[in-house]
């Protein structure tokens, strides 16, 4: 593809099924992966609920896109960060998540945000 590689960060702050933000964000990440940029995905606040494992959507008759986060690695999207505070506030731990992530403090996430060329918020 050539050209400069930019640092893109996607910030997810919404729960998965109540609004369409989470799914839209995931689709943008997957489409954006084709451009071979330096991508990271952050889950903060209710965004951590997007990657809770064991989601079963048959009864609500909605798409269970939580499984799609497992495909991110194959799209070379490997930097997944999760807010430590957001997990704790929700009684969750790293073991409750469907993908391997790096748990970061708010200060660490702030530093990562400063490094980016582009930040997209959902």
């Amino acid at each position: 593809m050539g050209g400069d590689v930019k640092k893109f960060m996607y910030v997810n702050r919404k729960a998965p099924h109540g609004t369409v933000y989470a799914l839209e964000s995931l689709e943008v990440v997957l489409i954006g992966a084709a451009f071979e940029q330096d991508v990271s995905v952050v889950f903060i606040d209710d965004g951590v609920f997007e990657i809770v494992k064991g989601q079963v959507t048959t009864e609500v008759e909605m798409k269970n896109f939580s499984n799609t986060y497992k495909a991110l690695e194959m799209y070379d999207v490997e930097k997944l960060y999760v807010s430590k505070d957001s997990l704790e506030e929700r009684g969750l731990s790293e073991d409750d998540l469907i993908v391997d992530v790096e748990v970061k403090t708010a200060a660490e996430i702030a530093a990562l945000m400063e490094e980016q060329d582009v930040i997209l918020s959902f």
Binding site: A15, P16, H17, F49, V52, K53, G54, Q55, V56, T57, T58, E59, V60, M62, N64, S66, G91, D96
Partner: peptide, 13 residues
Amino acid sequence: LGPDLKARGIADK
């Protein structure tokens, strides 16, 4: 509501 708990993976939490 059970179906909403299951959809969010928190039925056992």
